[in-house]
Design a protein around this nucleic acid. Sequence first.
DNA 1: AATAAATCCATACCGGGTTCAGAAATGTAC
DNA 2: GTACATTTCTGAACCCGGTATGGATTTATT
Lengths: 208, 208
Amino acid sequence: MMMAGLRERKKEQTRRRIAETALRLFDERGYDAVTVNEVAEAAGVAKVTLFAYFPSKESLVLDGIKDDTAAIVDGREEGQSPLDALHAHYRETARRGSGAIDMDGLLLRVRVITASPALLASVHQARMEQRHELAAALARALPGRGPAAQLMAAQITAAVTTLQEVFFWRLSQGVPPEEAARSLGEDVELAFDLLRHGLEGGNHEKGH
Amino acid sequence: MMMAGLRERKKEQTRRRIAETALRLFDERGYDAVTVNEVAEAAGVAKVTLFAYFPSKESLVLDGIKDDTAAIVDGREEGQSPLDALHAHYRETARRGSGAIDMDGLLLRVRVITASPALLASVHQARMEQRHELAAALARALPGRGPAAQLMAAQITAAVTTLQEVFFWRLSQGVPPEEAARSLGEDVELAFDLLRHGLEGGNHEKGH
DNA sequence: AATAAATCCATACCGGGTTCAGAAATGTAC
DNA sequence: GTACATTTCTGAACCCGGTATGGATTTATT
């Protein structure tokens, strides 16, 4: 009859316990200084069990941090340009931003990530894959020549990435979430203005 | 009297032997499937010795593949904008391109790299560092607000990266080097046009 | 030939990650 | 509640990349 499974509840519980233990230890002593054996022991499971729940040490931190730009492009409304769709999405994200998700957990994660070169490398790797998917989506959206889509995807991904970085950098500097969210709103407009009209186009105080 | 060092010659020779052996094995059987022990053995040295010459397995392939955009910006002529300096540099690179360096060795390296997720991740990591340096250089060059410099650095790095990728992709598809170099020249102009005037500015056939 | 310095190597070790055989827990049937 | 199948967990051994160490070999100088 399979009635909501007690097994599955325990599994989820164990999974959360492992992830939380790991994040706490990483924050206390640094990602690289904590071994997965310690995490497993502190969480009360065996190393093998830990790796049954998480495929790698990195995934203990990076579980579900994606930002699927390709899906946004693919799912845009008829007649809307890819750039407009992305602009609308990130404008909306910035507006929601402040109160929506739990800032504390997120900020903890970001703190752990930015403190570890290994995790940063992994994040970057994920972004590369995302960029390739976006390039494919753009090529679908505007079937012109290849290199243009790749160049656009690269620049868009770079801009979005930088928005995230600047946002979290502000938060880590102690800027209160509401103000950081407001600045993010401004940065989104700046970023898409740069994307649309170029680095030497507008009023963003650049000489010659 | 130190007469040109026989020691140093032997060292260089050993170093080359290790690197060439590694590249050959990686190309034959794949980077991940070859252990450094095998490389060391095939090159006739001990594992420890290999790591005395190269700091990591990756560096056997990625030795000296950087592309220092920050230095180009810092070393530009008086009155020249950062973007112009970079544009001139890559235009020149594309012109020289074809005959200058040994395409075969380079192409072999690129083939090995693109076939290995681990190496790709490492390349990407290096680019991230390069991007941060470029952001610092841009902030020095045009002391405006912070986020703009970071956004510009991100977009420029993304464009340059994509130029390389498209170039090597063409080569790997069998396009003859001279033609690939010519296409690279065109792509350089396209990329900097996009950078200067934006993704929806010019004549690069984008509809919406 | 003697000596100082550089180079090399065997071995043992560490941490991340996997494999495997079985122990423990859970679900099901009687 | 007992018996059995299935899932989950575990300890131990192992692989690979990388480091530490102490000694052996080669090279350069006198």
